[in-house]
Design a protein around this nucleic acid. Structure first.
Length: 877
RNA sequence: GGGAGCGUGGUGGAACCGGUAGACACACUGGACUUAAAAUCCAAGGGCGCAAGCCGUGCGGGUUCGAGUCCCGCCGCUCCUACCA
């Protein structure tokens, strides 16, 4: 045992963590240049980015997890010799600031920048390897100035459109919502039922990139499969035909109905036409028919209610109108109005072929409409084939279909489209689900759209010299609606073209615009001449590793993919792939148990006391508490844990270590206080181990003493094997596995320490190598502790954050002897230890000699010997 | 309805390309140290069995010398999405 020293017996993170944070800052360790460097500074680039936070007030555990994961990647890649860009900023426009303004009478800017200051402090306490010199907020005039420039460039390139359209109007927030922001008919923020209104709106023409946005998903091999799938579905490409059915008799001036179908091959199996209740022809019919009008009114009433959609009862009304069939002269079919036909997909009308579409079949059976099979399943007899309650939707052979008879479905599609085009009755088309992106928001706290409306000149862009269009500061939030519109003077300007009085656009941009290019701006955040500095953005983009929540799988990521294409096509960057994020990782949520008091109120974890007997009670009142399942931390369920408190109690390294240790990062994790306490004990253990080892270690860089010992060989083997396995785990995002390997290594190091204490000089030498390696291996996860230990082991040798990752010696990483499992008849009967690379005969002999194996063989003859070198022996008797 | 993911000890989870299932951690238990507690250290632990052994990765089959891993058929849970023609 070493003598009791004066050194403090415990690691003090409270003084240590700020000290190293200061050291990194003073040395600008994480600073990188905008433009590529030459000479010694020229390293390969690596851009790590986590989704930037909305400055809501305080950071939460989701942020801690997100930024810990990113920081591990950033620090690891830096150690691997990359020049790492790792910036941070604020997604700072948005409605909550206006709500706060209304509730607390603070200006949105004041509220936002105060929150940013608080959250910046909290993030800095986490010890993240960020280049803070690049920080910006999207509400900075410098940023939205550049965004207005981009908008005008997009406008010039024909990527911006203003048109009247039916919009989703949120009656609570008094704003328009994108389709993506309407969830189950309700506003994504307010939860209010969304109304349809017609308004002039600004659109970004994302649909121009339909094909590329879809096709390029195939090349994103470092994206999660399910995100690509979600985007594929969202873009929603379907190929088919538009077919025109002339009405037997015009109604309200309408002479024909056009439908979109993906199954033009089944046209000969037609039974009816179904119109959306919102279809113009439905309205025309209703004008003549009170019952039709009543049916439409009923659909509209049902339409919005979620329960009705869930019930999904198919309703229809026969208008009495008839259409002719372009391919079947003389035949006529009824025109129905049906509640399940959507006006905003395809043409708002369908043709029904019940035999080969389940929904059409349900409808036909309910209303007694004809069912004619036109596709015969393979191996079926035409005479006997009939449709019961199940439609046949697969490939087969066409029947009852004139010139299509005998063809398979794909060939029939091609053939029928050709015929329709010949007759002028239809045309082959590709239909997309994706719409243009409506970005107009009737809000104050967003980027002003730099346009001016003039009575005589129409819509005029704000000239470059007048940018930025700044938000006025003197606004009030008393009235509902848009404060920019209420402002007494802001919107009144002279027309840039004719100088007559004109009116500013008072809409601001959807905040998703702000986050669609921030990652590119980070490459040259202070560039003033243009939104992006080409030399910088072409060097750093794309983002090599993007990390964030799955909740942005569609909107943010799709909009960003559109923006990089639009920026490329307007000359702002090169980016041949068009893809902003080469690698994407979506982390799971942070969960916690939920607690309910006797009165049914949710309780914070702090309010709950757990007894030694497993009982759960209220910490103050002692009343019984019901423990609910673990769910994602949320304010409403009060199952939140404040990261600030955890960091104050245990330190940032502990919080970071626990975040990584418990489960795979893509899965939801459970935050437990016991787990955090366990991580804290480990930080103390590592520190203590180094303190205990210091007096036993040879000088740094000393040559290995003479012949090794068994203990030193074991120690060195553990060191090099751990370097190899931790490296591998970090490369594959298996951070929990990396943590487990470090724990194993710590256990092995404790044995090395015991040997060194026993006077084994070789073990002492190996122990130094082990501890120095350990500093590197835990560095990405526990950067402060790593620096502290490194400074103790190698005083005056700089920062671990600036040193290269250790290399594993492959020969040492392999063990000299290996344990082989011996099975008899496939059942494990014993293990033997053999030298690595031993001859098969030697191994088999040893296996058969093992006593337990002998007993299992029981003298029976061995029929077959299976030997997998280095793994297993299986003897069949 | 459609799609994706997941089912392994008390808990979170390991397990390369089919080769010793349960690494590592948390919790619990016993012991040491202490006046005591905390901290720390040591030890044991999938289930059944005194033991040899048997059974064990949601359930049922299959392939294989050998299956958590591959194939077929079910069950359960979670998330996403939805009258998309």
């Amino acid at each position: 045992m070493t003598e009791a020293s004066d050194a403090p017996a415990r690691y003090n993170f409270r003084t240590t963590e700020p000290r190293w944070q200061q050291a990194w800052e003073e040395r600008a360790t994480f600073r990188v240049e905008d433009r590529p460097q030459s000479g010694a500074a020229a390293k390969p680039k690596y851009y790590v980015l986590e989704m930037f936070p909305y400055p809501s007030g305080r950071i939460h555990m989701g942020h801690v997890r997100n930024y810990t994961l990113g920081d591990v990647v950033a620090r690891y890649k830096r150690a691997r010799g990359f020049s790492v860009l790792h910036p941070m900023g604020w997604d700072a426009f948005g409605l909550p600031a206006e709500n706060a303004a209304r509730e607390r009478k603070t200006h949105p800017a004041r509220w936002t920048y105060d929150n940013i200051a608080t959250m910046r402090d909290e993030l800095k306490r986490m010890g993240l390897s960020l280049d803070w010199s690049r920080e910006f907020a999207t509400c900075d005039p410098d940023y939205y100035h550049q965004q207005q420039r981009l908008f005008l460039d997009f406008h010039k390139a024909g990527l911006v459109d203003r048109r009247e359209s039916a919009v989703n109007w949120d009656p609570v927030d008094h704003t328009v919502l994108a389709n993506e922001q309407v969830i189950d008919g309700r506003g994504w923020r307010s939860g209010a039922l969304v109304e349809k209104r017609r308004l002039a709106q600004w659109f970004l023409r994302i649909t121009r990139y339909n094909d590329d946005l879809l096709a390029a998903l195939g090349g994103l091999d470092r994206w999660p499969e399910r995100v690509r799938l979600m985007q594929t579905n969202w873009i929603g490409k379907s190929e088919g035909a538009r077919v025109r059915f002339p009405l037997a008799r015009a109604e309200g001036g309408i002479e024909a109905v056009e439908v979109f179908t993906t199954r033009p091959d089944t046209l000969f199996g037609m039974s009816f036409i179904a119109l959306s209740p919102e279809h113009p022809l439905a309205a025309a019919a209703a004008a003549q028919d009170a019952a039709a009008a009543a049916f439409i009114a009923e659909c509209r009433r049902m339409g919005t209610s979620e329960a009705a959609i869930e019930a999904a009862e198919k309703q229809g009304y026969d208008t009495g109108l008839r259409v002719a069939h372009p391919l079947m002269p003389g035949r006529e079919f009824p025109v129905w109005i049906a509640n399940f036909v959507l006006m905003d997909y395809g043409t708002g009308a369908i043709f029904g072929c019940p035999a080969h579409d389940q929904r059409d079949l349900d409808f036909a059976r309910k209303f007694g409409l004809s069912v004619t099979p036109v596709v015969l399943p393979r191996g079926e007899d035409k005479a006997r084939f009939a449709i019961g309650t199940e439609a046949f939707t697969e490939d087969g052979t066409l029947i009852n279909s004139d010139f299509l008879d005998g063809l398979a479905v794909p060939a029939a599609k091609t053939s029928v489209i050709a015929r329709l085009e010949e007759l002028g009755a239809g045309v082959g088309v590709t239909q997309w689900r994706l719409r243009d992106w409506g970005i107009s928001r009737q809000r104050y706290w967003g980027c002003p759209i730099p346009m001016i409306h003039c009575e005589s000149c129409g819509v005029v862009p704000v000239p470059e010299k007048d940018l930025p269009v700044r938000l006025p500061e003197d606004v009030t939030f008393e009235r509902p609606g848009n404060p920019l519109d209420h402002h007494p003077s802001w919107k009144h300007v002279a027309c840039p073209r004719c100088a007559k009085p004109a009116r500013r656009e008072t809409d601001t941009m959807d905040t998703f615009v702000d986050s669609s290019w921030y990652f590119a701006r980070f490459c040259s955040p202070r560039h003033e001449a243009a939104p992006l500095d080409r030399a910088a953005v072409d060097h750093w983009m794309p983002v090599d590793q993007y990390i964030g929540g799955i909740e942005h799988a569609i909107l943010h990521l799709l909009y960003s993919r559109f923006f990089t294409r639009a920026m490329r096509d307007t000359g702002h960057l090169a980016l041949p792939s068009g893809e902003p994020f080469a690698g994407l990782f979506t982390q799971g949520m942070v969960c916690h148990e939920t607690y309910k008091g006797a009165d049914g109120r949710w309780l914070y974890p702090d309010e709950v006391a757990k007894g030694a007997d497993g009982s759960t009670t209220h910490a103050e009142t002692g009343e019984a508490v019901t423990v609910g399942r673990s769910e994602a931390m949320s304010k409403s369920k009060r199952n939140t844990v404040d990261p600030g408190r955890i960091i104050a109690q245990y330190g940032a390294d502990t919080a970071r270590w626990f975040m990584l240790s418990d489960n795979p990062p893509e899965r939801d994790m459970e935050w437990t206080d016991a787990g955090a306490a366990g991580a804290y004990r480990f930080t103390q253990r590592l520190w203590r181990m180094v303190q205990d080892a210091l007096p036993l270690l040879p000088a740094r860089g000393a040559a290995a003493p003479g012949p090794g010992s068994a203990a030193s060989a074991a120690m060195r083997h553990a060191t090099h094997r751990t370097i190899a396995t931790v490296t591998e785990a970090l490369e594959s995002f298996a951070f929990n596995v990396a943590v487990a390997r470090v724990y194993e290594f710590a256990n092995a190091t404790a044995e090395g320490l015991a040997a060194a204490r026993g006077g084994d000089a070789a073990a002492g030498w190996a122990l130094r190598e082990a501890l120095e390696s350990l500093c590197h291996l835990v560095g990405p996860a526990m950067p402060h502790l790593a620096e502290e230990l490194w400074a103790a082991l190698a005083p005056g040798e700089g920062l671990i954050a600036e040193r290269a990752w250790p290399a594993a010696d492959a020969a040492l990483a392999l063990a000299d002897s290996i344990t082989i499992a011996v099975q008899v008849g496939g059942k494990l009967r014993g293990t033997i230890s053999v030298a690595r690379g031993a001859e098969a005969a030697t191994v088999l002999a040893a296996a058969e000699a093992e006593p337990n194996v002998q007993r299992a063989i029981g003298g029976k003859p061995i029929r077959k010997r299976i030997h997998v070198p280095g793994k297993i022996v299986n003897l069949i008797v």
